[in-house]
Computed example of a mutant assay.
Amino acid sequence: MKEELKVRSKIFAVSIIKMTEFLQKKNATATVTNQIIRAATSVGANYRAALRGRSKAKFIAKLGIVVEEADEKLYWLEIIVDSELATKEMITPLWKEGNELTAIFVSMLKTAKLNRDNA
């Protein structure tokens, strides 16, 4: 599961980067592009850092960042659709995968906290 999530989060980040190349060019495009790329790439980077954590506390802290960034990338996908930088059809597959990854990381964080509290 760990390796699968490392791969999925990396593929997702690359997909976001590629998607941004097709966004309509408007005044806000550069800002939105930078924000979503930052959030999407941060998910995988922080997940990998969490796996290397030296303690349960470090793992939980890094996983908390993963969850925050995962949720943020969903926010930016909403902004892209709502501001008509891309069509909903273009964003839907990214939304689906982003939402699945977010749910997985939220579940992992809850489990890690529960295990910590029951130790």
Rank of each mutant, 00 (worst) to 15 (best):
L77A: 04
I79T: 13
L77M: 13
G98E: 03
F12Q: 06
E97V: 04
P93A: 00
A39D: 04
T87R: 10
A57P: 08
K26M: 06
S15H: 13
N99H: 15
I16P: 00
M90L: 14
L85D: 02
S42Q: 02
G98P: 04
K25Q: 10
V67T: 09
T92K: 15
K18D: 15
I17A: 12
A50Q: 03
S107N: 06
E3C: 07
T92F: 13
S15R: 14
E21S: 09
A119S: 14
A30Q: 14
L94G: 01
S55M: 03
G53N: 05
E69P: 12
A70E: 06
M90S: 10
V14Q: 15
K58C: 07
A28C: 08
A40W: 06
Y75C: 10
A13T: 04
I60E: 03
P93N: 02
T87E: 08
A57K: 15
E3I: 14
A49V: 09
K110M: 05
R8C: 06
N27D: 15
P93T: 02
A86E: 12
E4G: 07
V43L: 04
T92D: 15
R48T: 15
F59E: 02
F12I: 06
I91A: 08
I80C: 01
T111Q: 14
E100K: 04
M90H: 12
G64L: 05
R38G: 04
K56S: 14
I65Y: 03
K6H: 07
A39W: 00
V81R: 01
V66Q: 01
L51F: 01
N115R: 12
L77Y: 07
V7R: 13
A86T: 03
I60V: 05
K10G: 09
W95C: 10
R8E: 14
S42D: 07
E4A: 15
G98I: 00
F12Y: 13
V81E: 12
S9F: 00
K56P: 11
T20I: 03
N34Q: 10
S9A: 04
Q35P: 05
M90G: 11
N34K: 09
T41Q: 12
I91G: 02
R38W: 03
R38C: 07
K58S: 14
S9N: 01
N118S: 11
N27V: 12
E69Q: 08
V81W: 13
A49H: 11
M1C: 11
T111D: 14
K25L: 04
I91C: 07
V106H: 08
E3Q: 15
R116T: 12
F59P: 01
K88N: 13
A28S: 15
A61G: 08
S42W: 07
A49M: 06
E84H: 15
R52K: 15
L51V: 11
V67Y: 05
